[in-house]
C-alpha cells in the first residue's frame, strides 16, 4: 500500500506547529500503525531529519503510552483498539491519513505527537487509591467479594490511562478516566472507608487541572480502547453528590493521620 500522511509537527511546547506531508510507501497490511510510522521515521533519520516524536512503549495495548488523533478519531478507526494495536489493514491503498496529538487544554503538547498527561497522575494522587500500608493486610480471603462486584470492578480497572477519553470529548473532560477509578475502588469492600472522600477530592482535582465538565456526549466510551462504559461516570456523579450533601466534618483526634 502507498499512503499520504499529514502529520502534526511541532518542535517544542512553545513553538508553532503545523501539518506536514509525508509519503508512506510499500506499507504492508500486517504492519501496526506505529510500525508504519517507524518506517517513515527511519527514512527521515537517514536523511538527517528529525523523526516524528510519539510516545509508545509496550506496543500491545496495555501501557497506555501511545495515542494520537487519526483522521480526527482518538486511536483511529478500530473500536476498542489502542493506536499500537491498530493495523494497516484498516486502511486502503492511496488513503490520506491525518495524524495529530491529543488535543485538550489539560494536555499541553511537548513535541509533535507527544503531550503531557501528568494531570492524570495528579488525579490519582488526589485520592485514587486505597490506603493500605505495606504489611497491614489481613488474609486475602477474609472478606469475600461477590463475583459480580469483582468483575464489575475489574471492568473499570481495565483503564490504561491513555487519555483518549479526554481527547475525544468536546469538553476535554476526564470524567471517564476518573469515574473508572472511582468505580474500580468503590465497587470493592476494601474501597468503602475512603469512598466519598475519594470522590470529592478526585473531582476537585479534575477541575484544578483544567479538564472540562461532562455533558454526556458519550464520545469517551466510543474512543476508549478498553471499552469502559460511561456508566462509571454516573457512579462517580452519585458518589460525588452524596459526598457533597452528607460530607461530615473531618475531626482530628482518635488516632490516625488521615
Amino acid at each position: 500500500m502507498n499512503l499520504t500522511l499529514q502529520v502534526w509537527r511541532q518542535p517544542g511546547p512553545t513553538a508553532e506547529g503545523g501539518l506536514k506531508e509525508y509519503k508512506a510507501t510499500d506499507v504492508s497490511p500486517d504492519m501496526s500503525f506505529l510500525e508504519m510510522l517507524d518506517v517513515v521515521n527511519e527514512r527521515l533519520i537517514e536523511k538527517g531529519e528529525m523523526p516524528i516524536a510519539f510516545d509508545h512503549d509496550c506496543r500491545e495495548g496495555i501501557c497506555g503510552s501511545c495515542g494520537m488523533m487519526i483522521n480526527g478519531v482518538a486511536h483511529g478507526p478500530s473500536r476498542g483498539t489502542a493506536t499500537c494495536q491498530l493495523h494497516m489493514r484498516s486502511f486502503r491503498d492511496g488513503d490520506t491519513i491525518v495524524i495529530e496529538p491529543w488535543r485538550a487544554r489539560a494536555f499541553p503538547v511537548i513535541k509533535d505527537l507527544v503531550v503531557n498527561r501528568g494531570a492524570l497522575d495528579r488525579i490519582i494522587a488526589a485520592g485514587g487509591y486505597i490506603t493500605a500500608p505495606t504489611g497491614s493486610a489481613q488474609d486475602a480471603n477474609s472478606i469475600p467479594v461477590p463475583k459480580q462486584d469483582a468483575d464489575a470492578s475489574m471492568d473499570a480497572a481495565a483503564c490504561i490511562g491513555c487519555g483518549a477519553c479526554v481527547a475525544a470529548c468536546p469538553n476535554g473532560s476526564a470524567s471517564l478516566f476518573t469515574g473508572a477509578k472511582i468505580s474500580h475502588l468503590g465497587l470493592l469492600p476494601q474501597g468503602q472507608p475512603e469512598r466519598y472522600r475519594r470522590a470529592l477530592s478526585m473531582v476537585a482535582q479534575m477541575d484544578i487541572e483544567g479538564f472540562g465538565g461532562c455533558t454526556l456526549f458519550g464520545e469517551c466510551q466510543a474512543a476508549c480502547p478498553k471499552e469502559i462504559s460511561i456508566d462509571v461516570i454516573s457512579r462517580m456523579n452519585r458518589d460525588f453528590l452524596r459526598a457533597a450533601v452528607t460530607k461530615p466534618a473531618e475531626r482530628s483526634g482518635g488516632g490516625g493521620d488521615g
Binding site: Y129, A140, K147, D151, L188
Partner: peptide, 18 residues
C-alpha cells in the same frame, strides 16, 4: 493479602473467594 487490601480485583468464585 497486600494486593487484595489495595483493591486489586483478582478473579473470584461465586462464593466470593479468590
Amino acid at each position: 493479602d497486600q494486593c487484595v487490601s489495595q483493591g486489586v480485583p483478582f478473579a473470584r468464585e461465586y462464593g466470593g473467594l479468590l
